[in-house]
Simulated scan of single mutants.
Amino acid sequence: MNMSTLYELKEEHEALMNMLYDEEVDEQTVFDTLEGIEGEIEEKADNYAKIMKLLSADTEALKNEEDRLKRRRETLENNIDRMKRRLYETMKETGKAKFKTQLFSFSIVKNGGKQPLKLDVVDVSEIPSEYLIPQPPKPDNDAIRKALEEQELTWAHLEPRGEHLTIR
């Protein structure tokens, strides 16, 4: 086996990392590059694990940033809603339902779309059938699993569990 120099391994590693972050590079190219890096299965497995750890850390950082940006966006949306609600209330209180300024036009208008509907009954059986949408029954998977623990069923069976790789 031809042992790569440290410099070659570093270059291969950098090229691989660049590919993993490049959305344009297809999956097969990445795996072909991974397979081309020299080493025994144990060494390759270690390298895979190291790369996955790096990618996982970046993924976690991105998730945290997404959460932070989502909270920021929601704060801004809530501020807009509060300001709009306050302006609406002030216009209603002052009786000014419509006016223009040099920059904007303001008016209170009825909502479009379907008129809101509120059912005055609690029990659906009180509504005549012509106003109900028939729905096909759905299987209760939990009840079926429980039944399969006690007996065989001709119309259902449990599949073998899948397996996955863990790295600790």
Rank of each mutant, 00 (worst) to 15 (best):
D142G: 08
E149K: 15
I127W: 02
D142M: 11
P139V: 01
S125H: 11
I127R: 01
I133R: 13
V124S: 06
V124W: 02
A143V: 03
Q115S: 09
K118R: 08
V124Q: 07
I133L: 12
V122I: 10
Y131S: 10
L119C: 12
N141Q: 07
I133V: 11
L148V: 04
N141P: 00
N111F: 09
V121P: 11
Y131K: 06
P128K: 12
S129L: 07
I144P: 03
I144K: 03
Y131E: 08
Q115Y: 09
N141A: 08
Q115L: 09
Q135L: 06
D142C: 05
P136W: 08
P128E: 09
E130G: 03
E126A: 12
R145H: 13
S129N: 13
P134F: 00
P139F: 00
R145D: 05
Q135C: 08
N111S: 14
A143K: 05
Y131V: 07
A143Y: 01
S125V: 12
P116H: 00
L132H: 00
Q135A: 03
K138Y: 03
Q115R: 12
G112M: 05
N111D: 11
I144T: 07
V121E: 14
Y131N: 11
P134S: 04
N141F: 00
K146T: 13
P139S: 07
S125A: 15
I144E: 01
A143W: 04
D140M: 02
L132M: 04
R145Y: 06
V121G: 09
P137E: 11
D140L: 00
I144W: 00
L148F: 08
K138T: 02
P128G: 09
P116R: 01
Q135F: 03
D123L: 04
D142H: 05
E149D: 15
D140N: 03
E130M: 06
A143E: 04
I133P: 02
P139T: 01
Q115I: 06
R145L: 14
L117D: 07
Y131F: 11
P137F: 08
D123N: 09
P116E: 01
R145K: 15
K138L: 00
P137C: 07
L117E: 13
P137I: 03
P116G: 01
V121K: 13
L148S: 09
L117I: 14
P139D: 06
P137S: 11
L119W: 06
I127K: 02
S125M: 10
K118I: 08
D142V: 05
E149M: 14
V122M: 11
L119S: 08
Q115G: 06
P139M: 04
G112V: 07
G113E: 12
